[in-house]
Nucleic acid binder design. Sequence first.
DNA 1: CAAATAAGCAACCTAATGGTTGCGTATTAG
DNA 2: CTAATACGCAACCATTAGGTTGCTTATTTG
Lengths: 115, 115
Amino acid sequence: MARSQAAAARLAQAAPVFAALGDPSRLRIVARLCEGGPLNIVRLTEGGAVSRQAVSKHLRALEQAGLVRSSRAGRERIWELETHRLAEAGRWLSVISAQWDQALGRLKAFVERQA
Amino acid sequence: MARSQAAAARLAQAAPVFAALGDPSRLRIVARLCEGGPLNIVRLTEGGAVSRQAVSKHLRALEQAGLVRSSRAGRERIWELETHRLAEAGRWLSVISAQWDQALGRLKAFVERQA
DNA sequence: CAAATAAGCAACCTAATGGTTGCGTATTAG
DNA sequence: CTAATACGCAACCATTAGGTTGCTTATTTG
């Protein structure tokens, strides 16, 4: 039971992370940061389809999900990726898919033995 | 440019997947399927906080994101995980986080050489 | 100092989301 | 055949989410 409770807890933490990544504009910001290194809002807005304020909102959303971190530098604020959660979420997906494939394999083998 | 376009295309496909995973109820369904193997709606609803129809809606959302697949068996419909997209999304997260860490490492090294 | 730049705040709007309830329809079981 | 089961459909509701515009505030720069 302790195991499944821990799993449930990690699950509850994973949902906000996926939710944060589940928007095209935010995903674009993440990709953009990854390619371009630490950037400020103006740079992140350039070339995109939405306003600076929209980007700002998205950055705060990403921050709340623990995917991004910022620091003030003079009159500008620099944003950078926070990879802990990102990597964690990635691992979770891998585990889930691998477990399923294994279980399904066992199930198929069992069914075929019956037939 | 061809590279970044391909990357952008894969990005655009990734957003709906993350969005689908970004809801606690849906994430619970995914986890539940993973533990319990192929299940019908009633079983998936058991023990949860929401109604059968809510679960049904979520299943359709997951289906549209390509994360789940169903087949009719008599009067019931059996749902199972579709791990392709799941694994793909997981890989994307790993790549992004790894790339960032590398780039940041190079940046730090560069800055320190300047100082 | 004045002008330009980077950002924050707040109000507002529209559309999508997550949820419910109620009812209809196959399919299986007794 | 009748009852129970598993599901689908549709309407409806409240809240949130993504976005915009307008204004204010700090910091540079010329």
